[in-house]
């Protein structure tokens, strides 16, 4: 995924309108781009071309349905470890070797390694976290979600 900002003049007003509007939703219809285009005052063909172009530029990371991870079956848990600096790379290698480790970030805190475990079952989460504790001799703090809140996040384009 592109992490560098695009030069602001790469996107024109129409592109920004598309990015802003389609964050909120996209229809389920036989010709959904025609429906969305009409609301934007564009032609279907033009909207399709622009979305493809925005994707090629790296201005879009995903286009389509966003599924609830838990509804798809599976268990997830945010975990954190306090890893001494001298052992950081070694512990990172041990942790990342587990296929259950989906994301792993170094963060500015005493708890400096934060990762998400993803497994088919809760038991799979426990087994992976316990295995990491055995291999590293360090505590894996577990922060499963107790409640998730509806998100109003929007990226102004």
């Amino acid at each position: 995924m592109r992490r560098a900002p695009l030069s602001p003049d790469v996107l024109d007003a129409e592109d920004r309108k598309i990015l802003n509007a389609l964050q909120d939703g996209f229809p389920i219809a036989p010709h959904p781009f025609a429906v969305a285009a009409e609301q934007l005052g564009l032609e279907e063909k033009d909207l399709i071309t622009r979305i493809r172009h925005l994707r090629e530029l790296g201005a879009i990371t995903r286009f389509g349905p966003f599924y609830d991870a838990a509804a798809m079956g599976g268990a997830f848990c945010l975990c954190a470890m306090e890893v001494p600096e001298a052992e950081f790379e070694q512990v990172m290698t041990l942790v990342n070797a587990h296929p259950e480790v989906a994301h792993n970030y170094e963060r500015t805190h005493r708890l400096n390694m934060w990762f998400v475990l993803a497994a088919e079952t809760l038991e799979g989460i426990t087994q992976a976290a316990d295995a990491i504790e055995r291999e590293t001799g360090m505590c894996v703090h577990r922060f499963p979600k107790l409640e998730e809140f509806f998100i109003g996040f929007r990226v102004p384009a």
Partner: peptide, 28 residues
Amino acid sequence: MARMRAMQERGVIRRIALAPNHYALGMT
């Protein structure tokens, strides 16, 4: 389409949308 609408109603599909790359749009 009926199944996708039903999944959306049940919350299995949270939304169908475009996700902008927030890094590319300057939210770094």
